[in-house]
């Protein structure tokens, strides 16, 4: 919690506009009701950079990171597979197809800035429904079938995106940039698109924390202890997917956060989902915030794809933690 607060303050102050720490906080504090008007001390351009551009982006970083990490924790819990991440069920590929198609056709502005997010969100949800439909028989979802269905759908849709990329000439970069993920040029509207999902999903996932703990013993164990297995699986999968789709629709496909943050939290606090879920949300937020700050500042004015930064920074951290724990526990399995 403290780390999150410090990170927000720190990253808000870092940027290419050349404002000092004091400037940023002066402007923000002057936005509070009852404070004197900020325009006395700063230009309207400087105020806009802080309140419109930077604050919304920092908040969006935290929300997207938290959503992806939460979804990752949910998927890993239900699928009981350490390699599960928010994209396992093919949601990201579904969203990518929608977004790539829109960009390919040049329809980005048909519904204003909402076009790509809305279409990406819808195609992501359709993909989830397809996966669930594929993997359900007699009202029961076999975990192995769910994962396999996700893989099938994912590779099919991935091929479709590649097809669009290879067919387009002028917009290749735009499609690829979307797929690699970025939070550049986002605004408060994007924040409002993710926030409601996070507010609904977080308590639902937290409520299922103990049930997910019982899942680690196996579905039959969980059922014998009074968990309604099929209902829990469906609820957690749907909630996690909605979170993923919301995050992906505004940010593109940012890898690694949803896979690794829950694992890092697990390495630090143990296997209890009642801790993993809230801490993953916070850890995901902090991680994404720093990754994006690096993405927008490392090369000066040119932005790095966020997905590249998360993997470049995240993988070594994860490798170090894993290595350290193996030394401590003598290679015990998870």
């Amino acid at each position: 919690m403290l780390l999150l607060a410090v990170s927000i303050i720190g990253c808000l102050s870092i940027g290419s506009a050349g404002l000092s720490f004091g400037d940023v906080w002066g402007i923000l504090l002057h936005q509070l009701p009852g404070m004197p008007d900020a325009e006395a001390n700063w230009s309207s351009g400087e105020i806009a950079v802080v309140t419109q551009v930077r604050l919304s982006r920092v908040i969006l970083d935290v929300l997207v990171g938290a959503s992806l990490a939460l979804a990752g924790a949910g998927f890993q819990g239900v699928l009981r597979n350490p390699l599960a991440d928010p994209y396992t069920l093919g949601v990201a590929s579904g969203s990518s197809v929608g977004a790539a198609l829109i960009i390919f056709m040049g329809w980005q502005m048909v519904l204003g800035i909402w076009t790509v997010p809305l279409v990406a969100f819808s195609t992501g949800i359709v993909t989830l429904m397809a996966v669930i439909w594929l993997s359900r028989s007699k009202g029961v979802m076999q975990i192995e079938t769910v994962i396999l269905s996700g893989v099938i759908i994912q590779s099919f849709l991935g091929a479709f995106v590649s097809l669009l990329v290879s067919m387009s000439e002028g917009v290749v970069n735009q499609i690829l940039f979307w797929i690699m993920g970025s939070l550049a040029l986002r605004s408060w509207e994007h924040v409002y698109m993710v926030l409601p999902f996070l507010c609904v999903a977080f308590p639902i996932l937290l409520f299922h924390g103990q049930a997910l703990n019982l899942f680690t013993l196996g579905e039959r164990h969980a059922a014998n202890l009074g968990v309604r297995v099929e209902r829990t699986k469906l609820a957690v999968l749907i909630v996690s997917t909605l979170l993923t789709a919301a995050a992906v629709s505004v940010s593109g496909v940012i890898g690694f956060v949803g896979l690794v943050v829950p694992h890092v939290i697990r390495l630090l606090v143990g296997p209890d989902y009642r801790l993993i879920i809230p801490l993953s949300a916070m850890g995901g937020g902090v991680f994404m915030l720093w990754a994006d700050t690096l993405a927008r500042t490392a090369l000066g004015a040119k932005e790095l794809p966020l997905g590249v930064v998360t993997a470049l920074v995240g993988a070594p951290i994860f490798a170090y933690l894993l290595h350290r724990r193996m030394k401590v526990e003598g290679g015990g399995r998870e």
């Binding site: 680690t216 014998n224 697990r266 296997p271 998870e334």
Partner: peptide
């Protein structure tokens, strides 16, 4: 399910998996 689990407990074949709890 929960009412049933208060009355009936099951020791499964193979016992508990080697988890981190």
């Amino acid at each position: 399910r929960k009412t049933l689990a208060r009355r009936l407990a099951v020791l499964q074949q193979g016992g508990l998996p080697p988890v981190g709890f």
